[in-house]
Nucleic acid binder design. Structure first.
Lengths: 206, 206
DNA sequence: TAGATTGTTAATCGATTAACAATC
DNA sequence: TAGATTGTTAATCGATTAACAATC
């Protein structure tokens, strides 16, 4: 591959991936740029432009073959293998995340789950037994995990983030409302439904 | 106010709002554009530019007063009041959403919770009793709710979306992996941690 | 052939960034 | 005064969009 993708292109390609994955599950074999546009709110011309930068994947008058386009995008995003992630927090949110098919569908495997609560340790969430929080550093190092998901209360988020980073994690998904201080080379993605909602409301109200 | 904000500006302003809300909780009184940049990954010049389009809110050499900047951004986004939303699904994810302070902190009130499971109806999640799904249409209409949150399995998401839209909802937050077909004037926000993760991994791997 | 949809061009607009004077 | 940080300019880059020939 020539250059690194821009942030915008990589973000859009991964959204196309989600639409294609779901469309395939629904039994569709072909999809047009206009249909992808309807589901992603990305302009159809932009979609064709993003794709045509890497090859002629479509057929004029027909659209894109879903299977083959999925393969192409996975190749471009270099995301064909399995990825191991660690989940901290086995409460309601942690359980919901571990039981969701949303990660498995994209080759993402929850390889370790931690909690400080002795009542939760040993129980199973998703398919994994919950380990005691004290095992975090050793387990993350041993499994070479670089992605951590924080499903803990805001008050515990910074401690968990620091411990994950010390163990080698470089990408954090933060489901608490806390702001996290981490080293420069660690990427933090904070999920914030309330923020998205305020922004959606603005466009509804105006 | 003169014009409608662009999508980009509105999205960024609501992220600044989140950072300011948390910084205030941590006892800070002032904040610089560089600090907001560290937490949002938005360039500091861009932040100053976004804000200075609406007034001179900062003090040179000092930064921004958090309380007053919060007020200004809320005014710009017209998001000072309370907003009622409906939650469909009282499973683990629904409970996690209802119990999270993340909505209440921003003036968003979960005004109704629905589930089809008779075992869940009548129980309390967050502060609200779970109503039977059959009450959805009447309750959403009566309370003039325009925002719905889907915390249901993918197989039920389309039905719930259609029922919410029929009852008057115009903004949907979809926490399932399903693709939703809705009328043009309804905004769908699909939360997709797996997609974000693939995209984060790309930049880690290259 | 007729209809549909891609791939591509060209034009415009907003985002991004560095740099720095103003000023607290 | 010295240091810090805003507000603003100017230059560049990527995103967006309409339009349409190519072609399935």
């Amino acid at each position: 591959m020539a250059d690194r993708l821009t942030v915008g292109v990589a973000a859009r390609l991964s959204r196309y991936l989600q639409v294609l994955t779901q469309a395939r599950k629904m039994g569709k074999e072909r999809i047009s740029s206009q249909e992808i546009s309807d589901y992603t709110n990305v302009n159809a011309t932009q979609i064709r432009r993003d794709l045509s930068g890497f090859g002629k994947f479509g057929k004029r008058g027909v659209g894109y073959n879903i299977d083959s386009l999925l393969g192409e995008i996975r190749r471009i995003l270099r995301t064909q293998g399995q990825h191991n992630i660690a989940l901290v927090g086995a409460g309601r949110l942690g359980e919901a995340i571990a039981s969701s098919p949303i990660f498995a569908e994209h080759g993402i495997n929850i390889a370790a789950v931690f909690d400080t609560d002795p009542d939760k340790v040993g129980r199973t969430v998703g398919n994994m037994p919950v380990s005691d929080y004290s095992q975090l550093n050793a387990a993350v190092r041993e499994k070479n995990i670089i992605v951590g998901v924080l499903a803990v209360p805001a008050a515990s988020a910074q401690v968990a983030a620091t411990d994950l980073v010390d163990a080698g994690v470089r990408i954090l998904f933060n489901y608490s409302e806390a702001l996290l201080d981490v080293p420069q080379d660690v990427a933090v993605h904070t999920s914030n439904p309330a923020v998205e909602l305020l922004y959606a409301l603005y466009f509804h109200l105006t």
